[in-house]
Amino acid sequence: MTTFKLIINGKTLKGEITIEAVDAAEAEKIFKQYANDNGIDGEWTYDDATKTDTVTE
């Protein structure tokens, strides 16, 4: 398992969460579901060097 981080730069929700996932694709799926569940819809970027997804509304 690898640690992945999501940075949220939303209009109403800001912060970050960290998860353990098998790979980047699994982490992205989990993060996008989390964002959807919390009403966050924005531009996504991924930095492989830091294993960090960022969503900005």
Rank of each mutant, 00 (worst) to 15 (best):
T2V: 12
G15L: 15
M1R: 12
Y34N: 00
A35S: 03
E20D: 06
T12C: 15
N38G: 03
A49E: 11
G15Q: 13
G15D: 07
I30D: 00
D48W: 12
V22I: 12
K29V: 06
I8E: 00
Q33H: 05
D23P: 03
E43V: 13
E26T: 11
K32Q: 08
Q33M: 11
G15N: 07
D41H: 13
L13N: 05
T45A: 08
L6Y: 12
T3S: 06
D23N: 12
E57T: 09
A49K: 10
V22G: 03
D48C: 13
A27R: 01
K51W: 08
N9I: 13
A25H: 09
Y34W: 15
G42H: 03
I8L: 07
E20P: 02
A27Y: 04
K32W: 09
T18V: 11
D23G: 04
D48Y: 12
K32L: 08
I8G: 00
G15A: 15
A24F: 14
T12E: 07
E43L: 10
A35T: 08
F31Q: 00
I8Q: 00
D23H: 04
N38Y: 12
I19K: 00
A49C: 14
D23S: 12
I7F: 05
E20Q: 13
T12G: 08
Q33T: 07
D37I: 10
D47V: 09
L6D: 01
I8Y: 07
N36M: 15
K11A: 10
N38C: 15
A35L: 13
I8A: 00
K5P: 02
T56P: 05
N9H: 08
I8P: 00
G39V: 02
N9Y: 13
V22L: 11
E28C: 15
W44L: 02
D37G: 04
N36F: 15
G42D: 04
Q33I: 08
Q33P: 00
I40Y: 03
V22E: 05
D47S: 07
D53W: 15
G10D: 02
K14N: 04
G10V: 11
Y34C: 11
T50N: 07
G10N: 03
T52D: 04
L13G: 07
E28M: 15
F31C: 05
L13C: 15
I8D: 00
T54G: 05
I30R: 04
A49W: 09
T18E: 05
D47N: 09
M1K: 14
D23L: 04
E20K: 11
Y34K: 01
I17G: 00
A49G: 08
D23I: 03
Y46C: 14
N38M: 15
F4R: 02
G42V: 08
I19Y: 02
D41T: 12
D53P: 08
V55Y: 07
I17S: 00
T2G: 04
G42L: 09
E26P: 00
K32T: 04
T56R: 06
E16L: 09
Q33W: 08
T50E: 03
A24D: 01
K11W: 13
D47P: 05
W44P: 01
D53S: 15
K14W: 13
M1L: 14
D48R: 09
A35V: 10
K29Q: 09
I40G: 01
I30C: 13
M1F: 10
I40Q: 02
V55W: 06
E57H: 07
D48I: 13
E26S: 11
T12A: 08
T2Y: 15
G42S: 04
D37W: 08
Y34S: 00
K11D: 06
F4M: 00
V22K: 12
T52V: 08
T56A: 07
K14C: 15
A35H: 02
N36R: 15
D47Y: 10
I19P: 00
A25D: 08
I40M: 03
A25W: 10
I30A: 04
N9S: 05
G42A: 04
N36Q: 14
K5H: 08
G39D: 06
I7S: 02
D47L: 08
Y46R: 09
E26R: 05
I7E: 01
V22F: 11
K29A: 11
I30L: 08
E57M: 10
V22N: 07
A25V: 11
L13W: 15
T52K: 04
T12M: 08
L6F: 15
T52G: 04
G39W: 07
I40D: 01
G10A: 08
I19Q: 00
D37P: 02
E28H: 15
Q33C: 14
K32S: 04
L6Q: 00
K29T: 07
D53N: 15
T56N: 07
T2A: 07
T2I: 14
T52E: 05
Y34T: 00
T56Y: 07
D37Y: 10
A21C: 14
V55M: 06
D48T: 10
L13H: 10
D53C: 15
Q33F: 06
T3I: 13
N9W: 13
I40A: 02
N38F: 13
D41I: 14
K51R: 11
I40N: 02
E20H: 11
T54R: 06
N36W: 14
V22T: 10
K14R: 11
K32R: 14
D47E: 09
A24T: 03
E28A: 13
G42Y: 09
A49Y: 09
I8S: 00
T52P: 03
I17T: 00
I8K: 00
I19T: 02
D41Y: 14
T52Y: 05
I19M: 02
K11H: 11
T50S: 10
T3V: 12
E57F: 08
K51D: 03
L6T: 01
D37T: 06
D47H: 07
N36G: 07
E43R: 08
T50H: 06
D53R: 15
K29W: 12
V22C: 13
K5C: 15
G10W: 14
K14G: 03
K51T: 04
A21R: 03
T54Y: 11
K11L: 14
E57P: 06
K51Y: 08
L13S: 07
K5V: 10
L6H: 01
K5F: 13
K51E: 03
I17Q: 00
E43N: 09
